[in-house]
Design a protein around this nucleic acid. Sequence first.
DNA 1: GTGGACCGTTCACAACCGCGAAACAGGTGC
DNA 2: GCACCTGTTTCGCGGTTGTGAACGGTCCAC
Lengths: 184, 184
Amino acid sequence: MVDDARSGRPEITLVRWPEQEATRLALRAEGRPRMLLLNPTTPAPEPGDDLEDWVRIPVAEADLRARVSWLAHRLAIDRPAHRADPDPMIDDDGLFRVGDEWVALPPVEHRLARALLDRIGTVVTRDALARAGWPQGAPGRNALDVHVLRLRRRLAPLSLTIHTVRSRGYLLAVSGPASARASG
Amino acid sequence: MVDDARSGRPEITLVRWPEQEATRLALRAEGRPRMLLLNPTTPAPEPGDDLEDWVRIPVAEADLRARVSWLAHRLAIDRPAHRADPDPMIDDDGLFRVGDEWVALPPVEHRLARALLDRIGTVVTRDALARAGWPQGAPGRNALDVHVLRLRRRLAPLSLTIHTVRSRGYLLAVSGPASARASG
DNA sequence: GTGGACCGTTCACAACCGCGAAACAGGTGC
DNA sequence: GCACCTGTTTCGCGGTTGTGAACGGTCCAC
């Protein structure tokens, strides 16, 4: 992939328009940002996706640069919401992955994590968790607490948080900067 | 209300710049979109948030209209996730959700909140609330007041307000629009 | 107007209990 | 043997709930 959210600097291609309409369409198809340089006499195009902007030529070079940098900036602050934060997932080898980061989970925590992940964003009962973690019978009461604690610490580096919902259960959520607060 | 998430068509304000910098800042603070009309000799401003665009004047009216419509279009396809202000709801796990934010409610407050939410926008009598909160008999008189107070504080971060209607009861409502902004 | 009844807000406190967390010990795989 | 996984015990913090009391506002009788 050429453009990349991580790089922070997607390349913005300048496109003469309408002369290079073909180029524009190609870029759009690839999801790459572009700046249209509008022929002096052509009406402005209809709004397309948000990876596109345009400027009427002739234009002062400073203004063109400014507009490109605005577009780049918009992409930089827009992207994270749409694109970043790839969905967390568990593969069958006991690896919990988020994007290109991962942690290995031991058997019990692996089953707990799967149960939580299956219902990510919603509350999972302690009962349900216990059943998921120990299919043929749970050990003592506190075993679950301890394992949740350890799982919590293991997942923290991946920006995942296990919230406690007191007297109800646990809730897995991405602990992004603008996350909600729980009180229990 | 002037700007409105529900309408889907936020008003875009035209702002002369830099003359009306104060207006620009005010609009930004309120999270309202705006189009800067750049003084012919002023360098373009630094990129701000993505509710903003600019055009160098003098400009053909058609081009200005086009640019405004591009900005509007961008908001329409960008915003829905942020702006929608989805209706508050209570799920069965004791979570009170508004959009992607939530708080956990303890049992009593959960029942009170459900009673209030079921009649959101209308008055719920103290009697009805007491019955909802304590199905098999209410405790002391003050208990309800205290729990409403605590529920009030818990719901405030979600932009929800419990209004008192003296000698009648309580009323749940979404609080003013000028709140949730600014976090990004 | 004044005092008082009524109503609602808020704080402080006590009792209860769910859960967090550390420490420890046995088990297992390499 | 060593590192790790697992489960238990134990301690205590902090959230929940209800009560009492102080405070302030509204309305009515006088």
